[in-house]
């Protein structure tokens, strides 16, 4: 029996030892270390988190940084994730999503020598860069496109969580649609009131189908993972959907009219670039149409859906917004 035990031990050791590289610690490399904490949706949501992931990955390819990421999965894991990076002395910690703002406020206070960046949250601390976006401006443009494209004069909006941040998308969209087509009717629904609203494609699809039954032929979604259900509904009923945050035109080619791009990737990339150059600045970093922080997506997937006249119009509207001639309501500023 002892022989057997010995044999098992030897086999086990033989299995394990080759895989070992002890001391392969991140600190040894001398590179700047960047950690990113994703939102509940996770980095494969093809949207919000995916855009942030895109940005840091590009930065990691171009600059000599050590990049680590974490998908907390549930709300209770966000704070420990952020603190894990802080405890190990990371140089920059990026939080994706407003839900992390109150947590980051606390962690940034506990670790004043570490740089932080938060997407969609405003934190007043010298070591935190708050990356904010004028979602209403981008939404106005896609609303304008929808208003010019609809045949039924009815369009829809499906939001994720019923919160002021998503109301910014909705009001901008509605204003843009009405600007293009004053007699248009806009339906709106929200998936839910808590975190799970971002992760419920089934409910997203249901809401979209209900709107389509009421006559909507274009639906704009700002619902994270739940928005993928909206795309499904559009495909099944041969209607159009509008993507959000990242360029989602490729997700269902032919069924996605355009995407309201929130260039989280650019904002995140710039933050890392500034850190590497030693030019990290805390405070609010506002991204709007004027610095291409938001916009609408145009590529080979959706070009057949958009006539040149509409594109010319929307470019004109864009210039007028930047010039301040068209005022878009910021639903959060009220």
């Amino acid at each position: 029996m002892m022989k057997k035990l010995l044999l098992i031990t030897v086999i086990f050791a033989a299995l394990i030892l080759p895989g070992c590289k002890i001391g392969a610690s991140d600190a040894a490399s001398g590179k700047l270390r960047v950690g990113i904490v994703f939102d509940i949706g996770g980095k494969d949501d093809k949207s919000f988190n995916a855009a942030a992931w895109e940005g840091v990955k590009r930065a990691a390819q171009e600059f000599p940084i050590k990049l680590r990421d974490v998908e907390p999965g549930e709300p209770t894991s966000i704070e420990p994730s952020m603190r894990a990076f802080a405890e190990r002395g990371y140089d920059l910690i990026i939080g994706v999503g407003f839900a992390q703002a109150p947590i980051m406020m606390q962690v940034a206070k506990d670790y004043p020598n570490i740089h932080f960046a938060i997407i969609d949250g405003a934190i007043e601390a010298p070591n935190v860069a708050s990356l904010l976006f004028k979602e209403q401006e981008g939404s106005f443009l896609v609303g304008y496109i929808a208003g010019k494209t609809t045949k039924s004069d009815r369009i829809g909006f499906v939001g994720g969580m019923d919160i002021p941040l998503i109301h910014k998308f909705e009001t901008g969209y509605e204003e843009g649609a009405k600007y293009a087509n004053p007699k248009i009717q806009v339906f709106q629904n929200y998936v839910g009131i808590n975190d799970s609203a971002w992760n419920n494609p089934g409910k997203g699809k249901e809401l979209a189908k209900a709107q389509i039954e009421r006559g909507a032929d274009i639906i704009f979604q700002a619902a994270g993972n739940s928005g993928l259900g909206v795309f499904d509904a559009a495909e099944e009923t041969n209607k159009l959907a509008i993507g959000v945050d990242a360029n989602q035109n490729w997700v269902k080619p032919g069924f996605i009219l355009t995407s309201m791009m929130k260039r989280i990737d650019v904002a995140v990339y710039n933050t890392v670039r500034d850190l590497v150059a030693g030019k990290f600045v805390g405070g609010v970093h506002m991204n709007g149409l004027e610095n291409d922080g938001v916009g609408y997506a145009l590529d080979n997937y959706n070009r057949p859906l958009l006539p040149q006249t509409v594109l010319d119009d929307v470019e004109r509207v864009k210039k007028e917004i930047i010039a301040g001639k068209i005022k878009v309501t910021d639903a959060m500023a009220k």
Binding site: F12, L15, I16, G19, C20, K21, I22, A24
Partner: peptide, 14 residues
């Protein structure tokens, strides 16, 4: 658990 770690390509000792 160590064997599982080894199977996914990381070091159990780490």
């Amino acid at each position: 658990g160590g064997i599982i770690v080894w199977m996914v390509g990381d070091s159990p000792l780490l």
